[in-house]
Design a protein around this nucleic acid. Structure first.
Length: 509
RNA sequence: GGCGGCGUAGCUCAGCGGUAGAGCAGGGGAAUCAUAAUCCCUUGGUCGGGUGUUCAAGUCACCCCGCCGCUACCA
């Protein structure tokens, strides 16, 4: 069964920051989890490279737009690689395949009568690539006006192609009604519904004031409005308009993961475009929140933008991946602080999980010559712990299915804490003298429990969990969820245990 | 202005009609296999304020206060 998940395509007017990393890592965890669960996954990321802002940004640094976007797009690909994001494809909106697909989409909408020539005028902010109502503007003493975002605006009147968005109001509402899970989290869904109920105006989908975009078919004075261009990536990457290609089976997408700032484009405009084109709409659009940095809003002018690669260099990739998904319920806003990250690293990763594996494995190494013991006759406590572990894959499937990634981790840590309680109560180090057979049985229960935990955590921390599974002697091909039904072979020789998550100790000042 | 959300232990939050919960932080104890990690016990809240419904209200209704989101806009 197939599963198609996307990140937004990243806008190339600036370098990647922690917010981009967050979306990408979350999508990666979801993609990896579904692969682990045996599904046929397609995971798409990419860059959004057209528009006036990019044109300007390129000019500012003395580059042609294409050369400029080549450079910034590469930065994003580097980021994904360094974060071990497992996207299957990376689409750039400047690629021929995308331009052809987007052009075909336009042609289809126009042929259906959903695009018409009109004109648009209003206060336009180049920086935001958006129009604003007079009342939203702030007028300054010198007579200039700025948008609520702070961007300067200018009065623009230009002939424009418009998309007949107003005609889709009822169909959109009906869709929201029929598919309660279309938008998440639930609060965002309500916002979208009330926005649609408030009345939809036809949407300007072309610009003639700049050139850096995909030409409108049949009218090269215009380029496509950046959102029609950008949103199309989700289908052009699957080969649209060719619906017989090998990738088309992935449409409709199962999940578009987006930041809350671009929710509306995905939850209103995009489905309307698709309905107009006669294509099925995505199954779910989920908006995650934003990060503040040490309590402050992240901004270039404040200079507190966090570079994800610098973080990874300092703390290591998996602690960063873990922290971002564990610290805050997915969908809400969160605060990033070095202190909180170190707390998670030391308490959750080093103390709870890392030390559990280390103490269990070194008991096997020292007392059983490093050979994985046979399962013994299970006691009531054995059954309780193994039962918790066995239930984990199904629980995580449920959480990940709702994008509740923090809950998935919390659920897993319940088992880890139970395993730490178990090892203390069983005290295998004492059984070594009094009842070696029972000691072996206890260590086997621990090995099996850690195996489940490490298996289900692979999507979150692929590198660390691979090492943990190596130490448990789990063969490479036996690491997906279905493999958990097959017991590990007894007497497997385990490599000498090595700490997977070192404690972070602050350097003395 | 309209719609919606939130306000529960020092911190982050769960609970959404039936004797106040988790994690972290704090205190005490146990253990010593382990990355001085772990385990057990424990301090701590008049559940923003008020009124009402109910045998019973963080839990429902209404009002107020304070935050936040979406959205609209006036002489």
């Amino acid at each position: 069964m197939q599963f198609y998940v996307t990140t937004p395509i990243f806008y190339v007017n600036g370098s990647p920051h922690i917010g981009h990393a967050y979306t990408a890592i979350a999508a990666d965890v979801i993609a990896r989890f579904h692969r682990l669960d045996g599904r046929d996954v397609h995971f798409l990321s990419g860059t959004d490279e057209h528009g006036q802002k990019v044109e300007k940004a390129a000019r500012d640094v003395g580059l042609e737009p294409q050369a400029f976007t080549d450079r910034v797009s590469a930065e994003f690909r580097t980021m994904l690689a360094r974060l071990e994001v497992s996207n299957d494809d990376f689409i750039r909106t400047t690629e021929p395949r995308h331009k052809q697909g987007a052009t075909a989409l336009w042609t289809q909408l126009a042929a259906n009568g959903d695009i018409y020539l009109g004109h648009y005028e209003g206060w336009y902010a180049v920086r935001d690539e958006d129009f604003y109502a007079e009342a939203d503007l702030t007028t300054h003493p010198d007579g200039t006006r700025t948008a609520p975002t702070g961007a300067p605006v200018e009065w623009v009147r230009e002939p424009n192609y418009l998309f007949r968005l107003s005609a889709f109001q009822d169909r959109l509402l009906a869709h929201y009604e029929t598919c309660p899970d279309f938008v998440g989290p639930a609060g965002k869904r309500n916002e979208m519904i009330s926005f649609i109920r408030g009345g939809l105006h036809d949407l300007s989908v072309s610009r003639s004031s700049f050139r850096w975009g995909i030409p409108v078919p049949g009218d090269s004075d215009h380029v496509m409005y950046v959102w029609l261009d950008a949103l199309a990536n989700y289908v052009t990457a699957l080969g649209y308009p060719d619906r017989t290609g090998p990738l088309w089976r992935f449409w409709p997408a199962d999940l578009h993961l987006v930041g809350k700032d671009i929710q509306r484009f995905h939850a209103v405009y995009w489905p309307a475009f698709l309905m107009a084109a006669g294509l099925p709409v995505p199954r779910r659009i989920f908006a995650h929140g934003w990060w503040t940095i040490e309590g402050a809003k992240m901004s270039k002018s404040v200079g507190n933008v966090v570079d994800p690669l610098a973080l990874v260099d300092t703390y290591g990739l998996d602690p960063v991946r873990y922290f971002l998904l564990r610290e805050v319920p997915f969908g809400g806003d969160g605060d990033f602080s070095a202190r909180a990250l170190v707390g998670r690293m030391n308490v959750d990763l080093a103390n709870d999980l890392g030390n559990l594996a280390q103490r269990s494995l070194s008991l096997i190494a020292k007392n059983l010559s490093g050979l994985l013991p046979e399962p013994g006759p299970p006691s009531e406590e054995d059954r309780a712990l193994l039962g918790m572990a066995a239930a984990l894959p199904a629980r995580l499937r449920e959480h990940v299915g709702r994008q509740a990634l923090g809950d998935a981790l919390e659920e897993t840590w319940r088992v880890i804490r139970a395993a730490n309680a178990y090892i203390d109560h069983q005290a295998p180090w004492a059984l070594r003298r009094t009842d070696p057979a029972r000691m072996a049985a206890v260590l086997r229960v621990l090995a099996d429990t850690i195996r489940v935990v490490a298996t289900v955590l692979q999507p979150f921390m692929p590198g660390s969990m691979a090492r943990m599974l190596d130490q448990l002697g789990v063969p490479e091909g036996e690491r997906d969820l279905s493999a958990l039904d097959r017991p590990l072979a007894a007497a497997t020789a385990l490599p000498p245990p090595q700490g997977v998550f070192p404690r972070w100790v602050e350097e003395a000042a």
